[in-house]
Amino acid sequence: MWIGTLILVYHNHFRHCHSQNPEMAPPVKVMLAIETRDLSKSFGSTRVLQGISLTVNAGEFFGLFGPNGAGKTTLLRILTGQIEPDTGTVVTASVPNTDPIRLKHRVGIVPEAETPPTFLTAQETLELTCRIRGLDEIQGRIEKWIRFFDLEDKKDILCRDLSKGERQKVMLAAAFIHEPELLLLDEPFINLDPIYQRRVREYLQGVASEGCTVFMCTHILEIAGRLCDTIAVIHEGRIVEQGRLEEISRGGDLEEVFLRAVEGVAVA
């Protein structure tokens, strides 16, 4: 049976030697962090996205809002190379959606639901992330994020035995640990208590001010209103509002923009 293992090892080395390691690729100056053209996606007979064209500039803090089932998560999954659109093109962090591994090397992703590995501890989950991403100074990076989320006394517990909030912290740490140039976050504040919501918010503001692009979907409009430079509102699979927050809010708050875009309601 070791013959099988040897074949696997040989094949793995073969791939390793003949493909470019994305970590070794020279850094590319990203001007547009995300660019989509005419994206459409259907699941069976249900059209989830229709003609989505979006641009997010490098260094922008971008918020995507929409009612439940509007297509936010599907769009995020397309942007991160998890699924392919039926039509249209996507380039995220200078990488087309058709090369998801290279794309995921460049970005940090927080998915909709927190599902860290069942049988690894919090510490091991971050170690696995570092090893998969080929990072150096693993222990230093992990210690930093364990401290950031106050997980010192939880780091040896299996992820399945952590609370929802603790799992979310592990997922956030795994997305931030390689200091990516672009963060794609789906409800990053969910399950976090106000202390950590604030801590994560401040971290995101900090990295955005240093040039990191943040693309965030959230229903917590109060936080989003304080963070986002640019927003888009998606409704029934179409972008119904897009632009700089201060321009489209017309002096109102984000909730007004949202309701006006989705329901056509003018809030007094």
């Binding site: 994305p22 995921k104 998915p111 989950t125 998969i132 997922m171």
Partner: peptide, 8 residues
Amino acid sequence: EYLNVQPV
């Protein structure tokens, strides 16, 4: 499912 967001 965790690996959906990792380069694997």
